[in-house]
Amino acid sequence: MRHSLTGSILAHRDLGDAQFEMTVLAPDIARDARPGQFLQALYVGAGGPLMRRPFSVFHADPEAGTLAIVYVARGAFTIGMSALRVGCSISLVGPLGNCFVPDARPAARHLLVAGGVGAPPLYFLAREMVAAGHAPKSICVINGARSRDLLVAGADFAALGVTLRETTDDGSAGRRGTVADELRDQIAAGGPCSAYACGPTPMLRAVGSLCVEAGVACRVSLETVMPCGLGVCMGCVIKLRNEAEPEGHSLVRSCHEGPIFDASEVIW
């Protein structure tokens, strides 16, 4: 169920490199949020902002009634948000959208592919999978960015005990290259596996194409502008293959039918 509420900021940590982790008291949303779902957030600032912005849930603690998001302060909205102090309130609508569903095959390896600020929902997925009894070693997180300072949630993934493979375009951390390079090797290692990806669109396209060619199921979480996030404004549509349509595709709402889609159905 979706909720509209105002929550108090309980913690707001500067993680360095313009990254912040915000924890909010929001019991209704914390209870219902699933990995991959998002929130529409808005705070009161002088002269703006007017519209909400979507943020994936980083983790939710139903018992404490708290929710966390991790974000990078790089636009007017997020820079303004990073100045909010503990005790301030923030308005949240959520949880919204669909969620990641882990591959149920007992021997499956789970390849979680994160690019930059795409990491938070995959951290939530990894955390919930470990809590649900998946062997940490069956979960391989491939976390990539252009450079070391742009990697998100590295220490959090490591603390879960999952296999962590980092990549950077410039080689400043982990493997020099892209998450797709590492994913190709992980798939080649053999055995049944599924991929779950979130990150910039070019990365998702590369990851999705690679998985489709290799016959690996791949769910991608798409990042689009979402004016309402509620399924009514039609401002966030993406193209999904649909042979029944004369154009060969349907235009579907990434906020409502998504944000997670089967990579084989997305027209990039």
């Binding site: 902002p49 007017l50 689009t224 502008v225 004016p227 404004c233 039609m234 401002g235 549509v237 235009l251």
Partner: peptide
């Protein structure tokens, strides 16, 4: 089907 994206801007 509506217009191409992007369709909105704040």
């Amino acid at each position: 089907r509506g217009n191409p994206m992007p369709r909105t801007a704040e």
